[in-house]
C-alpha cells in the first residue's frame, strides 16, 4: 500500500505527498537524521515507511524488492507450463496451489515496494521495458515434469536460503513480507523434493527424467546466489544497511552443503565431479561455476528471456481493457455516491 499522507507540515519540513519520505532536512542538514537512521539499523531495529532514509537506501530497496516481486510473477511461467499436464490430480492441485502462492507473494512484495514511494504500475512498466530485472533462474525452460520437482527442491531451496535471513532485514515492510512468504513457502520446497523422490524411486524412465532435470537445474541454481563476493561491488553497502545479511558466497556454500546429503537421499547425482567434503574447511568443495553463462543470461542471452518477457507484456497489454473497465466502473459508482451525498446535504 502507498505510504499514508503525513499530517500537515510543521515548520522546516516539506509536506510529503503519498509515499514521499517524511521529514526533510532541518537546519543542521541530514547529519542528525542520518545518525538516527544508522543507529536504528545498528540496534537491529526496523526502518519504517515514515522514517527518514538516505535516497540511496530507498532506491536500492526499491530495486531489490521490485526484483523480488518480478521474480515471483515471472516464476509462475516455467511452473505454470506444467499445470495443464500434471500427471496426477494430487500433483495438479499441489502445483496450482504453489503457483497461486507465487502470485500472492508478488502482491505482498509490490505492496512493500509501494511504501517507498513507487507505484506497482511504474514497476511493471520498468519490468516490461527490460529496465528492471527478475531472477535469471527463470530464464531456463521446464522441459519435463521432473523440472517441476527440481525447481521446488533447488530453486525454492535457494530462494528460502536467501529469504529467511531477510525476515530480519532493516526495512519493516520488506521484513514482514518475508515472514509471511517464508511461512507459506514451507511446502513449496518439500513438494518438489517429494516429487523428485517419487520419480527417482519409480520406473527407469522416471529415474532418467529426474536425473536429467537435476543435471540441467543444478548449476543455474548455484548462480541464483549472484556473482562471487569479489565481483559484487554493491554487497558491502547492502550489508551495512542490513538489506543483505549474508554474502553471496556464504549462502551459496551453505546451500551446497545442505543439498549434497539431500541428493544422496534422492538417489540423484549432482553434475559436479569435483564435489567433495573438505574436512579442514568443514564444507563441500565444488567445481567452477560458468560465470560466462551467468553473465550471458543476465544480459538477455538465455534460453527463455525473450519468451518470459513477451508472455508478461502480452498478458499486460491484453488485460488493459479489463483494468480500464474496472477503473471506469469504480469512477461511475464514486460519482453516483458523490451526487447522492451532495443531494443529501443540500
Amino acid at each position: 500500500m502507498p505510504a499514508p499522507r503525513p499530517e500537515a507540515a510543521s515548520p522546516g519540513t516539506a509536506p510529503g505527498g503519498p509515499g514521499a519520505p517524511a521529514a526533510a532536512a532541518g537546519p543542521a542538514g541530514d547529519a542528525p537524521l542520518l545518525e538516527r537512521f544508522e543507529r536504528t539499523i545498528a540496534d537491529n531495529q526496523r526502518i519504517e515507511p515514515r522514517d527518514w532514509m538516505p535516497e540511496d537506501y530507498r532506491a536500492s530497496l526499491v530495486r531489490q524488492i521490485a526484483q523480488h516481486a518480478h521474480s515471483e510473477i515471472i516464476g509462475m511461467q516455467p511452473e505454470g507450463n506444467w499445470l495443464t499436464r500434471a500427471p496426477s490430480l494430487r500433483r495438479k492441485a499441489i502445483l496450482l496451489a504453489k503457483v497461486q502462492d507465487e502470485a500472492g507473494h508478488g502482491l505482498y512484495l509490490y505492496s512493500a515496494a509501494e511504501t517507498l514511494g513507487v507505484d506497482r504500475a511504474e514497476l511493471l512498466d520498468l519490468l516490461h521495458a527490460g529496465r528492471q530485472r527478475y531472477s535469471s533462474i527463470f530464464n531456463y525452460p521446464t522441459l519435463t515434469w521432473a523440472d517441476v520437482g527440481a525447481i521446488g527442491w533447488l530453486v525454492d531451496g535457494a530462494a528460502i536460503m536467501n529469504q529467511v535471513p531477510l525476515c530480519r532485514c532493516s526495512y519493516g515492510p520488506y521484513a514482514r513480507a518475508m515472514v509471511r512468504i517464508c511461512k507459506e513457502e514451507s511446502f513449496h520446497q518439500r513438494q518438489g523434493f517429494e516429487l523428485l523422490h517419487t520419480l527417482s524411486h519409480g520406473t527407469e524412465a522416471q529415474q532418467e527424467m529426474a536425473q536429467d532435470a537435476v543435471n540441467r537445474w543444478w548449476w543455474p541454481s548455484l548462480m541464483m546466489f549472484g556473482p562471487p563476493d569479489d565481483a559484487s561491488p554493491h554487497s558491502a553497502r547492502s550489508m551495512a544497511w542490513k538489506i543483505k545479511l549474508f554474502s553471496n558466497d556464504e549462502l551459496r556454500q551453505k546451500f551446497i552443503d545442505v543439498c549434497v546429503p539431500q541428493a544422496e537421499v534422492l538417489g540423484v547425482t549432482l553434475p559436479d565431479p569435483e564435489l567433495r567434503w573438505n574436512e579442514e574447511r568443514g564444507h563441500y568443495d565444488h567445481g567452477q561455476i560458468d560465470w560466462a553463462e551467468f553473465r550471458a543470461v543476465l544480459r538477455g542471452d538465455g534460453p527463455c528471456n525473450a519468451q518470459r518477457l513477451a508472455h508478461r507484456r502480452r498478458a499486460h497489454v491484453e488485460g488493459a481493457w479489463v483494468r480500464e473497465a474496472a477503473a471506469a466502473y469504480a469512477a461511475k459508482r464514486a460519482a453516483e455516491t458523490a451526487l447522492r451525498t451532495a443531494g443529501a446535504s443540500a
Binding site: 510473477i73 509462475m76 511461467q77 499445470l83 497461486q100 500472492g104 502482491l107 498478458a315 488493459a320
Partner: peptide, 11 residues
C-alpha cells in the same frame, strides 16, 4: 494462471 489481466486475478 500467469496470463490474467492483473495479479489479483491470477490469484
Amino acid at each position: 494462471v500467469g496470463s490474467a489481466p492483473q495479479i489479483e486475478e491470477d490469484v
